[in-house]
Design a protein around this nucleic acid. Sequence first.
DNA 1: TTTTCCAATCTTGTATGGTAGATGCCATGC
DNA 2: GCATGGCATCTACCATACAAGATTGGAAAA
Lengths: 225, 225
Amino acid sequence: MGASVSDIGEETMALRVVGALRDDIVTMALKPGDVISESDIAGRYGVSRQPVREAFIRLAQQGLLLIRPKRATVVKKISPEGVRQSRFIRESIEVEIIRRLAGNGGGEAGRVLGELIAEQEAASSANDSRRFHTLDELFHRTLARLTGVEYAWQLIDDHKMQLDRVRYLTLGSSSSQLAISEHKVIVAAVVAADAAAAEAAMRAHLARAEVLLSQTIAAHPDYFE
Amino acid sequence: MGASVSDIGEETMALRVVGALRDDIVTMALKPGDVISESDIAGRYGVSRQPVREAFIRLAQQGLLLIRPKRATVVKKISPEGVRQSRFIRESIEVEIIRRLAGNGGGEAGRVLGELIAEQEAASSANDSRRFHTLDELFHRTLARLTGVEYAWQLIDDHKMQLDRVRYLTLGSSSSQLAISEHKVIVAAVVAADAAAAEAAMRAHLARAEVLLSQTIAAHPDYFE
DNA sequence: TTTTCCAATCTTGTATGGTAGATGCCATGC
DNA sequence: GCATGGCATCTACCATACAAGATTGGAAAA
């Protein structure tokens, strides 16, 4: 399974269990539809049912678990409609971000984003898809930070976990080169203060995920509702 | 205080406590900064500490409570920056919704929205601000439904509670007539399929909340960080 | 063979006791 | 009078026991 709860770093047992379970779910070590129980996880991690139960509540609120009272708790299957609408939310916010950023004509934006793209190219050349993913996430969060809405990005992070599960299933089908070139177009539009072009580039960049979703559903129908 | 947990309707005790506390917090019966404890609430509602504890966890994840381990649990003060960014998220999504709706040139949209506005005028004439608030919320949610992203609206509902607390503080300073006329402009732009005009009208409509926030902070400084 | 029903055994929900950490008051020493 | 240390008393956290609904299996009856 994933990381052990003996890996310290969190404050309470409950939070450690939350972290361990979330990793297992996002990385598909726990698959959608898998049935777990408080006693099961408690025994596996050497704690009592109490902190496990609280972890379940947290994860259920984040949409990763489904608690069926008096019945069982299952890893929630991925809702295609939920993914679609999570993408809608993300696109709405990111488009707004990119327009404001292009409007402000950020001076340091071009430099910072350029450095990130360079790192992504290095990761892509090294076929380090894990690191590429991290850098891609950092790229988008940096856009939020430059616009002064980093907290807003954190707010949608929960819903992004649904997208991450899909993303994990598609690892290796790396179109990282394509993503990098798309990033370059976005940054170019921002430094040129061309809001319309930046918006169009961002929409095209995000739209590519749509076909990935269809392919993933076809490849793993059991993981979806 | 607010509603009693003896008001049935929820499945478990914990969920009943969640509902009761959330109502008390949003309606300012429990004020930002108020200190509560598991034993306190448990005794007040006649349940054990366990379901109260689980209710605290849920409300903490929704940003209404702040659990300080081994210290205390307090009603979270309203973060002006959080409110600002919650509004950013809402504006991003609502603008995207209104643009798509105008683009589709919804046939039934005009009729449905027109009926809602008529009801709002009735509520406004009767000085029923409570009902007006409900109808206003329904107006915006209907926009989401007509665009096919009602689920997305539900996703941002949690963060909207922060805005609702501010809104509750401003009840009575009713500019409902202004809101109604703004709604009319939005609907007119939608039926005319004028996306740009619809977007501008929506931004203007939401921008009005900004000044309300400043006034509210000045009137109740203790409730904000 | 098919259907029905009951009981063993799962599950989550709730109650309670004990533990460790944080706080604040108060006495003690200066 | 003032600073300091210890103790009473809070808090949330965790473990354990019990309760009650849901499921499943098999036995018994049709």
